[in-house]
Amino acid sequence: HDRLDIIVASDASSDATDEIVRQCTSEKVRLLRVEGRQGKTACQNAAANAASGDVLVFTDATTTLGSDALQAIALRFRDPEVGCVAGRLTYISRQDDATGKGGTSYWGYETALRVAESSLGSLIGVSGCLYGVRRSAYRDIRPDLISDFV
């Protein structure tokens, strides 16, 4: 807990995001407002540059984290050879239709591929909704790209 620094990057949000963060009473939580509606990747780069930790963890506003998610990610960085850790996405559909079932099937397949990659000591890609990267391994990403694929 004493090593946690939470940065909420706001992409010039016009909803209540900024106000919600400002009302947060924890000194661990701070707002980073990025003007100009530059997109998620520009906000991620700005947050990485503003962060103070040795491990950067990125998540999306639509992602709900399990209570042990951050600890599980952090533990993997005990190995100095680890540069990036992918979170495990569990896709939960709010619809019982072909789209919802397709999303569930797709993520099941993706998870199986990532488990196989991991067993080989490799990581081809991460889900932008939750992953950690060692600060020394992070590089700014071009704003017209997304972290899932870079």
Rank of each mutant, 00 (worst) to 15 (best):
R33M: 14
C24P: 03
V55I: 15
L130V: 05
L89S: 10
C43V: 15
A74Y: 01
W107S: 13
V21K: 08
A112H: 06
L123K: 09
S127M: 04
S119P: 12
D148Y: 02
T17V: 07
S122T: 11
D96W: 01
T17R: 08
S136C: 10
V115L: 06
S118C: 05
R114Q: 11
L123Y: 02
T63A: 04
T90M: 08
R114V: 03
P80E: 04
R142P: 05
Q71Y: 12
A69P: 05
D54E: 15
G83V: 08
Y131R: 03
V29G: 07
P143M: 07
T90S: 03
V8T: 06
E35C: 04
E110A: 10
G108L: 03
G102C: 02
Q71C: 11
E27T: 07
T90H: 14
G53P: 04
D5F: 02
V85T: 02
G87Y: 02
D68S: 11
V115S: 11
G132W: 00
A12W: 11
K101Q: 13
A47K: 12
S10D: 00
A74I: 13
R88G: 10
D5W: 03
T99F: 15
P143N: 05
P80I: 01
G103F: 02
T111R: 13
D97S: 13
A69I: 14
S14W: 02
V150T: 04
Q44A: 01
R78H: 05
C43F: 12
I20C: 11
A72P: 01
A137P: 00
S10W: 04
G128A: 03
R3C: 02
A74S: 10
Y138W: 15
G39Q: 00
T64A: 09
S147L: 07
S119T: 15
H1L: 06
V85N: 02
I20W: 14
A112E: 09
Y131M: 01
A47W: 13
L32D: 12
V29A: 08
D15A: 09
T17F: 00
V29W: 03
P80A: 06
D54L: 02
W107G: 08
